[in-house]
Simulated assay, not measured.
Amino acid sequence: MNSSRNTPPPPDMGGLTGDWAKLQELRRDKTPTSREPQQEQHQDKESEQPTGRRQSRPGRTRGGRKPPPAAADAIPTTVRFDPEESSQIDRFVLELRDDAGRRALDKAEVVRELIRMGMEHEPTRKALLRRLR
């Protein structure tokens, strides 16, 4: 019975010695020292991307004009779709997310931007009016 209560020995971590120092050294070697090499690296990354894809701009985490309001400040609006149309819209939003090179994009953000486009872009407004008549 005493042997079953013994705790197992700690795992052998000997193979990991020096890994942290190697990682820090690699990071130091890849960090540009001035602004010019960083711009060159940025241009290289653009050329590596498949055609038709836009690279997201540095320092920008969300698309659109402004971030969504905080939940406490928001005025909720409900848009209802039938099940078939909802599936089509989900696919469309996923395609937009992929085309925009974003990790996250929700339907509310798409609807907000479409309404803003209708208010600011006259051809979009006219096309919307034709659909609504």
Rank of each mutant, 00 (worst) to 15 (best):
R57Y: 03
S56E: 11
E109F: 04
R57G: 03
E36A: 15
E122Y: 10
E122G: 11
R102F: 07
P69N: 07
E46A: 10
A108S: 07
E120C: 10
E40A: 12
H42F: 00
K126L: 14
R53T: 06
W20G: 13
P68Y: 05
A70D: 12
R116P: 03
P83K: 09
G63H: 01
R60S: 07
D99G: 02
L128M: 01
Q49V: 15
E120D: 13
A72Q: 14
F81H: 01
D82E: 05
G14V: 05
M13S: 10
D73F: 00
R80I: 14
Q41V: 04
R60T: 03
D44M: 15
A104V: 05
L132C: 06
L129I: 10
R54L: 03
E36G: 12
E46M: 14
P37Q: 01
Q55I: 01
L114C: 11
D19I: 12
D90M: 06
P76V: 04
G52M: 01
L129M: 11
L105R: 01
T61R: 10
Q43F: 02
A21Q: 15
D90C: 07
P67D: 01
K30P: 07
T31C: 06
E95C: 01
S87K: 15
P67S: 10
D98Y: 09
L23I: 11
P58L: 05
D106A: 02
M1Y: 04
K107D: 04
R62G: 13
H42L: 11
E95I: 12
G101K: 00
I115P: 05
G15D: 09
S87T: 15
R125T: 06
S56R: 15
S87P: 06
R130K: 14
